[in-house]
Every structure is written in structure tokens, then in C-alpha cells.
Write a protein that binds this DNA or RNA. Structure first.
Lengths: 352, 352
DNA sequence: TTGTATGCGTTATCAC
DNA sequence: GTGATAACGCATACAA
């Protein structure tokens, strides 16, 4: 009953204290708690009572130490915030939860000492998923070689390090062709390929698709130095300033696209009549935008889940090979296709 | 040179291995690594060489065990995603970094077993910051009593648990009065007070301010069951459907407000002419919206930083008392005040 | 069914 | 300057 306060500086009880109070050995205490071997009912009761009396709970620090395992897996992102990361995390957590493993999250925020941060982080988990542009291939390889099992996410596999990624290529090509079919002549890609291997692949494939039909594409002179709507808006403003002739803006993700649409409006251009805008990811916002955003669906939740599954295979010593998940172009209104607005029934307007 | 692979199942080397190879005792190895006592230069070199040869790095697990400290602090959010959390985390990390502590992040996602999750989490850190509506006061108190030092964030202090919060009250009152001055009669608050103590306070104060001048306010019949733009949009659509007479919508945060503005447009209403919209947080997006969003600035980065500072005080055994940070109403265009659009200079329109 | 003894990889306290 | 050795709190092989 006299559970001592843990913050009052009172030393926390150990197995020895519980064993002594219960009049048994520490082995028995451990057995009761872990349920690792049969224990007489009355003994078990005595142990439980003693543990409760002292407010004892086994030290995770000690447990992890003796088990030589953290009981946790980690996932590293360049940033947090935004629907993409949230959903990938959700998928990752779902799988980790099934495996009784805790999830640790690290965001490198493009800090210069990212390698160091990830290295520190690696010492706190049993295995690691590294996404996009956080640390370079050499660092990842080193990590996998002398720290812990590693899986890459949204990024190409490295020697000895399997990867989980979405098939960006086909959709990028398809999306580019679709934009061309709408008659776009001057097409701009908005997003910084150097910020993410995934984005780079999209950029490469889109550019190739356009060159194939004799079109040219410019990466925007004003790059979006980030993946959020604020960057997209600023970049869009610069892009549309001075009456530059731009037919279509293909964005690195949906948030950037959202910003570009607002920038277009602010600059007096209509979407899609004056300028086509496309996104990437198919985030929840995409369907709600005005016009609804044409984009590419990525299975974000599954990307996280599969990365976790792969990581646990590695931890189990099972063979693990890279996986590629399908993507799909989602045609909505921002590309110029006819669209059904979300079912709005305002009194001042007729249905639809 | 023959650094063994860590993933190949080869057992990682220990101090003993290094000591043996260097021909010294483990005490000396430890001394060299920690630089805790003078060691002869040639001995040090030998140790370093041996450590390098074996690719040895001291086990964090063992270190944490003997030090009885994780070297990490944690912060618990109801969710991730969105600018609010990102910036709070940034502030928290900045301070933790100064103190050489790692940062662990947990999102409870409104899961039913949140208490359990946070409890598990608490065992992995030396101290904890708990924000908003993650676990109830009783759980927090229990956590602080028998696990580790705890600080509350964006939430009232509990007995024995200090808190860091923003002064929502004054700004809520001021904002409400401002909306009234614009002639709004039918005002709706959009956001679920039950989702966050912070939001509840805003709702209470806004309602009080309106009653004080004989106005009434209704919490929206369709609550925004979340803090993102998607929820705001849906709630807005419902709100504006059927020609409901609504003068002003005061939102729980900027993302919801963004969704409401889009919903208003989709429903054929002009902002702010037909309906006033206000937000909360002053996220980066607020200034970019059309019209620019009238909102309340919260020092998000500092909230995180101060929470961390308070936590470290607690860990140091220093006295720590709650802190309240100021907020400020930011008047922009969405309330009906004249506004300067961001400097856009499209060719098709004159300046401004 | 229970107890004894040992190991896990460090750090720290002695004595030399 | 250096080496032996004792913790730290738990799990577990082996005895009884």
C-alpha cells in the first residue's frame, strides 16, 4: 500500500527487494512476472502482493540490457508534418504493433549532422528504416554494416540494404502524356529533385516522356525548396510573375500543387483553363481542392507497413528482398478533364 | 582493419575484447574512451588502435543500464502532421539538443490504449512532456508519481505536474469582440472542444465574450472531428448547406479555417463579404490564404522549448513552476478588415 | 516447484 | 598510471 513516490528521489525497488519481502528467490520473482515457468499459486500470490506493495515494475533498462535488445524499431524521415509522413508512420506503427515492438521516430530536418543523429538513433533501436533524403548511400551502407539491420524507404536499394518503394516511373510517364494530350506546350516541373530520390525519379521520367514527343520541359527556375504548400505558393508566385508563358505545372507533391493553385489565382490565372496543375501522392486534400487535383496515388500506409515487415524479416534472419508497390494516376479536374465537384448543395446555387 | 559486420550475426565486441587485444585492463579501456582519468600516451594509442581494429563502440544498452539513465526525453502528441506539432517539436529538440539529450516522439492517434502506450513510452525516457488530449489528468498524475518527471504542454497543470501553455483567454476574447465589431450576428465556433483542453478554453472564452454583449454563439452542429483542412472542409460544407444563415465561423486552428474557406467558396459564399472566417495558431499558411487569414499567433517553437527547459529543471531537481506564454491577435483580411494582398505582380493585373 | 549461481557490458572504487 | 573487482537489475541454466 505504501507505494513510494518515484520522483521523490527514493531509489526504485529491484527484484531483490521484492524477493526478500515475498520470502522467495529472485528467480521466482522473475518467473512470476515473465510467466516463464510454473509457480505455485500461493507463491505467485505472495510475489504479486510484494511487487504491488513496493510498487515494483521490472526495469526496462535492465531488461533490454540482458536481452541485448531494445524492443523498438526506428524510422527516419527528412521531416515531419504533412500527410505523407503521417500515413507512412501509421502503416509502420501498425505492423510494429503486431510485432510488439515500440516505434521511434526521427526527423533530420536537413541538419548538417544528420549522419551523427541517425547514428545515435540507431543505437536506440533493433532495426531502422531510412527514408528519402536523410543520409547518403554510403552512410546507410555503413549503418547496415556495423550497427543494425536497415531498410530503405522511398529510395533505391543499396548493396545489402533492401528497399521498399513505389513505382513512380510508369505513373510519371502516363501523367506527362496526359498533360500533353491536354495540349500543354510549356510545362514546368516544380519541386527539387535533389531533395528526394523519389522526386528525382519523377522528374527524370516526366522529362523523358516529354522529350519523347518532342516537347521540352524545364525544371522550374524557382525551385520549391520544400514539400509544403508554403513553398509551392512562393515558387508559384515567382513562376507566374512577369507574365511568363506557362501551360502546365507538374508538382512534386500535392501540397506544393495546392500552393501553386493559390498562387495561380493570386496571379490572375485560371486553373485549368490558363494553366494545368498536377500533384503527387493523392493526399486527402487533393480531392477537395478547387478544381479537384489530378495526381498520382501512392499507397502510403502500405509503404510504411511493408517497410516494417521487411525490417522484421531482417531481424528474424529471414531473407528479405526489395519490394515495389504500384501507383496509379488519378484524373480529376486540375488537368483540364471535366470534373464533378464534390456534392455541394448551397441554397444559392442549383445542384452541381 | 578487419571490422566485422554487425549484421552477419557476429557477436559485437566488448571492452574485454578490446582490452585483451590492446594488452591492458578493461578499466584502462574505459578511461581512454571516457577520458575520465589520465592515461599514458602510448597506452591510449594502443587502446584506440585495438578499438578501431575491432570496430568497437561501447554498448548504449550497457551504458544506459549502469548510468540508470536513457539519455533521452520524450514528447507525446495526440497526432503528428500539421505545422503546429512540427514547430513545437523543433523547439523541444533545440533545447534537448543543448542538453545533449535525444528526443523521442510519440503520437497516440486517439487510440483507446493511449495510457498503455504512454506508459511504455515513459519507460524509454528520463522525462516526458505530455501535450493536449492524449491521456487524462489522473493518468498524467500517476505517471509523474511513479514513473518519471512530467511536464504538461498546451494544457492546465495538474497537482505536482507543471505546465507550459499559451494565454488563450485574452486573445480569444479580443478576437471575438473584433468579429462582433464587423457586425457578425450568427457566429459559429468550428472545432471540437473535447479534442483539446486548449481548444476548449478558446471556445469558452469566445462564448463568454459574445454573451457579454448579448450575442449568442453556437458550437457548430457539425463538429470538425480533427484539426486538419479536410475536416474543416467537410464541416464547412455541412455548415453552409441548406442556406443556413452564418455570419462568421471562428475555427479551432488555421488548417480548419483553410478548409472552411474552401467550403465557403464551393458553397457560393464569399469570404469575408458573406461570411467571416478566423483561425488560430498563425501557421505559415495563414498569411498566404485568400483572403489572408485573421488568426491568433501562438509562440509554437517557444512552447516546445520552454516545456523542454522545464523538464530539464525537473530532472535536475530544480524547482519548476508553470509558465504561460503570450499570444496575439493577428488581423488580416478574412475578418473583413482591408488587406494588402501579398505582392503579386501578374502581367494581367495591375499591382495589388 | 524452487533456489543458486552466473552472465550481460559498462562505470567506478579501490589498491597498487 | 594501471589493474583487479564490485556493482547495476534482470534472465536463465543448472541443481536440488
Amino acid at each position: 500500500m505504501a507505494k513510494r513516490s518515484r520522483t521523490a528521489g527514493a531509489k526504485r525497488p529491484s527484484v531483490y527487494d521484492v524477493a526478500r519481502l515475498a520470502g522467495v528467490s529472485i528467480a521466482t520473482v522473475s518467473r512470476v512476472l515473465r510467466d516463464s515457468a510454473p509457480v505455485a499459486t500461493h507463491t505467485r500470490r505472495a510475489v504479486l502482493a510484494a511487487a504491488d506493495e513496493l510498487g515494483w515494475r521490472p526495469s526496462r533498462l535492465a531488461r533490454a540490457f540482458v536481452a541485448q535488445s531494445h524492443g523498438a524499431v526506428g524510422i527516419v524521415f527528412p521531416d515531419l508534418g504533412g500527410p505523407y509522413y503521417s500515413r507512412v508512420i501509421a502503416g509502420f506503427e501498425a505492423t510494429a504493433c503486431e510485432r510488439q515492438a515500440a516505434v521511434l521516430i526521427l526527423a533530420t530536418h536537413g541538419r548538417a549532422n544528420a549522419e551523427e543523429l541517425v547514428g545515435e538513433f540507431a543505437d536506440r533501436v533493433d532495426g531502422l528504416v531510412v527514408t528519402g533524403s536523410t543520409i547518403d548511400d554510403a552512410s546507410v551502407a555503413a549503418l547496415a554494416r556495423l550497427r543494425c539491420p536497415v531498410v530503405m524507404l522511398a529510395r533505391a536499394a543499396v548493396a545489402g540494404v533492401p528497399a521498399v518503394r513505389a513505382a513512380n516511373g510508369p505513373s510519371a510517364t502516363r501523367l506527362a502524356r496526359h498533360v500533353i494530350e491536354h495540349g500543354a506546350e510549356r510545362i514546368v516541373f516544380l519541386g527539387d529533385p535533389e531533395l528526394s530520390p523519389d522526386v528525382d525519379e519523377r522528374w527524370q521520367r516526366i522529362a523523358r516522356a516529354l522529350r519523347a514527343v518532342g516537347r521540352d520541359i524545364t525544371r522550374s527556375p524557382v525551385r520549391a525548396h520544400g514539400f509544403d504548400a508554403v513553398h509551392g505558393y512562393k515558387a508559384g508566385l515567382d513562376l507566374f510573375a512577369g507574365g511568363a508563358a506557362v501551360d502546365a505545372v507538374m508538382c512534386a507533391n500535392d501540397e506544393i500543387a495546392g500552393g501553386v493553385v493559390r498562387a495561380a489565382v493570386a496571379s490572375g490565372r485560371r486553373v485549368p483553363d490558363d494553366v494545368i496543375v498536377t500533384g503527387w501522392d493523392d493526399s486527402p486534400l487533393a480531392a477537395q481542392m478547387h478544381p479537384p487535383l489530378t495526381t498520382v496515388h501512392q499507397p502510403m500506409h502500405e509503404l510504411g507497413a511493408r517497410a516494417a515487415a521487411l525490417l522484421f524479416d531482417l531481424l528474424d534472419g529471414a531473407p528479405a528482398s526489395s519490394v515495389v508497390l504500384p501507383t496509379a494516376v488519378v484524373i480529376r479536374g486540375s488537368c483540364g478533364c471535366p470534373t464533378h465537384l464534390p456534392s455541394v448543395t448551397p441554397s444559392t446555387k442549383g445542384k452541381q
